[in-house]
Design a binder for these strands. Sequence first.
DNA 1: AGCTTAGTGTCAGTCACTGACAAGATGCAA
DNA 2: TTGCATCTTGTCAGTGACTGACACTAAGCT
Lengths: 212, 212
Amino acid sequence: MADTVTDSTPGRRERKKRRTRDDLIQQAVRLFAANGFDETTTEDIAEAADLSQRTFFRHFSSKEAVLYGDMDELRLRMRAALADRPADEPPIDAVRQAILTLADNYEAEREHRLLQARLAAAYPAVSAYSRAVVQAEWERELIRAISERLGVDPVMDPRPEIVAGAAMSALRVSIRRWTASSGTDHLPTIVDEAFDALSDLSRLAAAGPPAQ
Amino acid sequence: MADTVTDSTPGRRERKKRRTRDDLIQQAVRLFAANGFDETTTEDIAEAADLSQRTFFRHFSSKEAVLYGDMDELRLRMRAALADRPADEPPIDAVRQAILTLADNYEAEREHRLLQARLAAAYPAVSAYSRAVVQAEWERELIRAISERLGVDPVMDPRPEIVAGAAMSALRVSIRRWTASSGTDHLPTIVDEAFDALSDLSRLAAAGPPAQ
DNA sequence: AGCTTAGTGTCAGTCACTGACAAGATGCAA
DNA sequence: TTGCATCTTGTCAGTGACTGACACTAAGCT
């Protein structure tokens, strides 16, 4: 047993791999912020991390993926938030709280999240990835939680998907507005207003004639 | 005035261009259906239409774009449907009717729309494009119509975006289910149920304990 | 018939991403 | 400690989407 105290669970190999991955993320984010997304090549990123391009693609499946390399942790936090809500709470409220958990994180990591959101606003490829991968994962978490609460099979009953989709849509709009304010507005507040609007969907009435 | 009767408005050049474009769409759709999206190269499509790859990219900005080359017309039809609804109708109802117009078209062009939906389900790149371009355009139409009806500025008031986003989400879910049924279910009916669920969002309650 | 303009082909180039192979590091067992 | 299996990486060659530059031809106009 010549174990040093350092490696508690993961071995040396694991730690090295993790460090390499973190390096790639850090360098990528730095370069994206400095020069833009399209303007940064995967070769640039690998170079900055002193690795080959091939190694970059062994850690991340695309240039977009490295920008969102830290999202898995957030997804799990959201899942935990859902599990913590009382089982008899109306699903839409549990969902609102889960989304607020995400919003809190955006405030806590304001600079980084703002960069991601700005790049998504500026580069279609980033926006597409964010929706198709990151947000799709969040949405799946919501669908799973909602169908459990309703006690229904999400394949048969469309309501979990409808609710989750509406919630994700509200989040997207909220983040867009938060980004437009450069993160000066309070995202959880924006999200709260968005969910209020969602509850009032059917009560939304057309305006009368413009001041008669 | 040596006009022949054939070219009523667009000149020979325009017609030729249009025909080339239509050829590309037709060949692309045929090849996608036969071999799959990733399995078909832009070179294959150009070749099948007896054109150079460079010309393909002069008509379509991406391989995804050619698959949705017929969507502009549908968007305009949706816009017209929105304009036709009474101005004092609740926005959510006008939106529902607009989406039902889309659904009707999906039934009318079942085979083609089903192919698009299947390719979107099978190929992430297609799904991403569909959302980021096609559906984003539809959503913008909704936002514009809703803010006009509410008499508000969509930059200041988040409600138009919220409503439009929720509606688009309901449409996506509906199309997914319609696709899963291979188009045998009636899409307008599915859409109607989705909008009913949307109206009942806040009344959705958790199930009691599983049969005590 | 001339002149301008727009659509096309060809060619060369960039860049994201992938498969194959070899080499060095790591974990593990004898 | 040694030996072997496994993992991570680098190198190299290749595919395919997409773009800029240039020359050529057809279409519209006078």
